[in-house]
Design a protein around this nucleic acid. Structure first.
Length: 429
DNA sequence: TCTGGGGTCCTATTCCTA
DNA sequence: TCTGTAGGAATAGGACCC
């Protein structure tokens, strides 16, 4: 999709058409999530700090992100894709790979299918998308980039909409591109490649693999070297499993209140647990992420004996991990995630619902964990999964009485998201 | 008063066990 | 019983994507 979030804002407010529209955090620490091509002409781009974007484009119309609305339209767009092929791999809300190998008998050639998809999306949801047609995912991705509109300092140039990379012309398309075009080459990798004199995809392909391996390590080098040669065997995977699920918040001001931060961790854990149950998942590894005022980031993780989807267990583990992190430079960002996911079973017996956290010492002794691991002493080590019924009860109450009907008691009577709120967007509670 | 949030993947190191 | 080692799992950090 072209400038997806911004395009949705224009769709819902046609008065914005042709104007510079920026979707992003307006707080003191916000960044640009998406912007219209008119804003891009002024030098604004995704991930740019909001303060910088305001300076670059003072007349822009700002909108706060509305992820539920974007998801709604993304679902509608994916449903359109599925009319052409079942092999749809969603990369993000606004990007997907379609393997149309088996659809050509029904819908025509690749370019014909691309044009039909664009028409169907425009008619179905009123948004424009750009399509790349190519023999593999890398080339299709790069071709779709080439198909998009272009923002220049003198204005917006409409793109071709569809770009086709024909078999036999892969390298002619690929090799002149900047090496940063390759999926997986960000600023750090680009800097290493530039030190070798590698600036284009073609120059990467021409560099001996052993030289690239020395700079990037074997895995990344082999992967990028193959991509630079136009080789990309990755299949379109319609049903990719979720590997982790988390939530994190950047505070408007650095914080030092460890009690308040611990309460926020409980709130975030509750949100993650709700997400796990909604997805029918439970996870064994709890990770806490703490970004300090100087932007250094620390993570602490602990793997539990069983998979959990209960907020109380995730919160207790997260809070224990959090206590092991030095707070000497203030806390800018705090986050919780759960990984080592598995499908939540229903065979485990239910546990008594606990409504809030208590100090570990006030609870009955936990069964001993496996030798060694439990001795390190962070967090609960119950021997089986905590899941299903208590969380389902919480979810049922919230479904009936609203999402705020039940909250961790530790977060009651205090702002829900820290003094200044995440991204400075204000406190709830 | 530069740097969000939700993710995936890779690498190096540490810990534990056989 | 002690020690060295190898391998796997866990942990921590970082790069990258949209």
């Amino acid at each position: 999709m072209d400038a997806f979030f911004a395009a949705v804002e224009v769709l819902d407010d046609p008065g914005l058409r042709g104007r510079a529209v920026i979707v992003g955090g307006t707080g003191r620490r916000g960044v640009v999530a998406s912007c219209s091509y008119e804003a891009r002409s002024a030098g604004v781009h995704s991930a740019m700090p909001s303060a910088q974007a305001r300076r670059a484009c003072p007349g822009a119309h700002w909108r706060a992100p509305r992820h539920d609305r974007y998801r709604e339209l993304s679902d509608a767009i994916h449903a359109i894709f599925h009319r052409f092929t079942p092999l749809v791999e969603g990369v993000s809300l606004d990007e997907a790979f379609l393997d149309v190998t088996g659809a050509r008998r029904l819908f025509g050639t690749g370019p014909e299918i691309a044009a039909a998809v664009r028409r169907a999306v425009a008619e179905g949801v009123g948004l424009t998308c750009s399509v790349g047609v190519a023999p593999n995912k890398l080339l299709a991705k790069l071709a779709s980039e080439a198909a998009k509109p272009r923002a220049t300092t003198s204005g917006v140039l409409s793109g071709p909409g569809v770009v086709v990379v024909e078999a036999g012309h892969e390298l002619a398309f690929l090799h002149p591109l900047a090496v940063t075009s390759l999926w997986g080459v960000g600023p750090a990798t680009a800097a290493k490649l530039h030190r070798l004199g590698i600036t284009t995809v073609g120059s990467l392909a021409a560099t001996p693999l052993s030289v690239v391996e020395h700079a990037l390590g074997p895995a990344a080098a082999r992967h990028l070297h193959a991509l630079a040669s136009g080789v990309d065997d990755r299949p379109v995977e319609p049903d990719r499993e979720t590997k982790s699920l988390g939530h994190e918040e950047t505070f408007g001001l650095d914080r030092w209140d460890s009690d308040g931060l611990a309460a926020d961790l409980a709130r975030m854990a509750d949100r993650v647990a709700t997400g796990l149950r909604r997805a029918g998942l439970a996870g064994r590894t709890v990770t806490v992420k703490v970004r300090a005022g100087d932007f250094t980031t620390r993570t602490r993780s602990r793997t539990l004996p069983g998979a959990v989807d209960q907020a109380v267990v995730i919160a207790e583990t997260a809070q224990a991990l959090f206590r092991s992190v030095e707070l000497d430079r203030g806390v800018r960002l705090l986050g919780v995630s759960v990984s080592s996911l598995e499908v939540a079973g229903v065979e485990d017996p239910p546990e008594q619902l606990r409504l809030d956290l208590e100090p570990p010492s006030s609870r009955p002794a936990q069964p001993p964990g496996p030798a060694g691991r439990s001795a390190r002493g962070v967090g609960p080590t119950s021997g089986r999964a905590h899941r299903a019924v208590p969380g389902a009860a919480l979810d049922a109450v919230r479904a009936r009485f609203g999402p705020d009907a039940l909250r961790p008691a530790s977060s009651v009577d205090r702002p829900a998201a820290g003094d200044a709120g995440p991204g400075g967007s204000g406190a709830r509670g």
